[in-house]
């Protein structure tokens, strides 16, 4: 009854508001340009322009070390990139890193949020412990984990040794370096996803659970039949945000391994950085950027279509 009464009332209010808005807008039109101008200028200068300029650069041999003006080289940079083993290795590493981080960074914070949401005592402490690492700079995280992963002096191998296991050389071993970086990343960023999940869980009205309890639904059934379906949108959001965050990884890998050993952890953004700033080849670096850019844009479009279709259902 109440909803029925609310319905038309609300629509008419909205319509009235929209009418007002239109009247308002018609009165003074171009003044809005003044308000967006600061943002528009920054956006154009530091986001749109580098994108366009990078496209131009990718067809030149612009080199920071060379004094001569850059000359047009056509598709040479792109052809070189497609044949460059390190480009593909970096792309592969980036995808692998994204897979390895996204799975635990969705499941683990979800489980922790479900636990914390049981209304256990000491809420502030759980939140503090899980969330605090997110406040640290990547440099701090990298220094702490480089120390923990130290093969001889590190706490992790000392702990493994105390239970009779010999720990690997972690960051110095191509077989374990990626795992070590992933562990540090999960520790560092779990807090963000945890908060998103917790906020979503706290939005679920308690009555729903109470009704389910009365009906005799077990805790497990409640989680799978009530909670997870209700926060499905948040789960999809966290997956999307996490993929976007992982795919542009740079900081912790650069600081912990520098891409090594033997390129086993080199991510695409790092290769762009090395090409541009260690080898001074701005043109070639821009071409690699553009290949990656196109891949990410296509991926985003696929994701948007996939998620919007899921949300419709």
């Amino acid at each position: 009854m109440t909803t029925a009464a609310l319905g038309p009332n609300r629509t008419s209010r909205l319509a009235a508001r929209r009418g007002r808005q239109r009247r308002w807008h018609r009165n003074r039109q171009p003044i809005g340009l003044l308000y967006v101008a600061p943002f528009a200028v920054l956006f154009a200068m530091f986001l749109v322009w580098p994108t366009i300029y990078g496209f131009y650069l990718s067809f030149t041999d612009r080199n920071l070390a060379g004094a001569s003006a850059p000359s047009f080289v056509g598709l040479a940079n792109y052809l070189e990139a497609f044949a460059d083993q390190v480009v593909w290795r970096s792309m592969g590493n980036t995808v692998w890193f994204t897979v390895l981080t996204t799975i635990p960074l969705v499941i683990l914070p979800l489980v922790v949020a479900l636990l914390v949401n049981l209304n256990l005592r000491g809420q502030w402490f759980w939140r503090l412990a899980i969330f605090m690492p997110f406040l640290l700079a990547s440099t701090v995280v990298s220094q702490i984990f480089t120390w923990l992963f130290n093969p001889d002096l590190g706490l992790i191998n000392a702990a493994l040794g105390s239970i009779g296991m010999t720990g690997p050389a972690w960051l110095q071993d191509p077989k374990t370096a990626m795992t070590a970086v992933v562990i540090a990343t999960v520790w560092w960023t779990i807090g963000f996803n945890f908060l998103l999940f917790l906020a979503a869980l706290q939005n679920i009205p308690a009555q729903i659970y109470e009704a389910a309890s009365v009906d005799g639904a077990s805790a497990w059934r409640q989680v799978f039949l009530i909670t997870l379906p209700l926060i499905r949108r948040t789960v999809l959001l966290v997956v999307a945000l996490q993929v976007l965050a992982s795919i542009k990884v740079f900081d912790q890998i650069y600081q912990m391994t520098g891409g090594g050993p033997a390129n086993s952890t080199r991510a695409i953004l790092m290769y762009v950085y090395d090409t541009g700033f260690s080898n001074y080849r701005l043109g070639y670096a821009s071409a690699i950027s553009y290949i990656f850019f196109v891949i990410v844009v296509v991926l985003s479009l696929v994701q948007v279509r996939f998620f919007s279709r899921k949300a419709d259902r």
């Binding site: 018609r26 986001l47 990078g54 950085y273 948007v304």
Partner: peptide
């Protein structure tokens, strides 16, 4: 406020959320 180019600029702004702009550091 309604102003010329509002829709285009807003669409561009939103679209840029989905792109890892760090890729254009060079």
């Amino acid at each position: 406020l309604e102003f010329p180019g509002r829709r285009v600029l807003y669409a561009l702004t939103i679209a840029s959320i989905m792109v890892p702009t760090q890729i254009f550091i060079v």
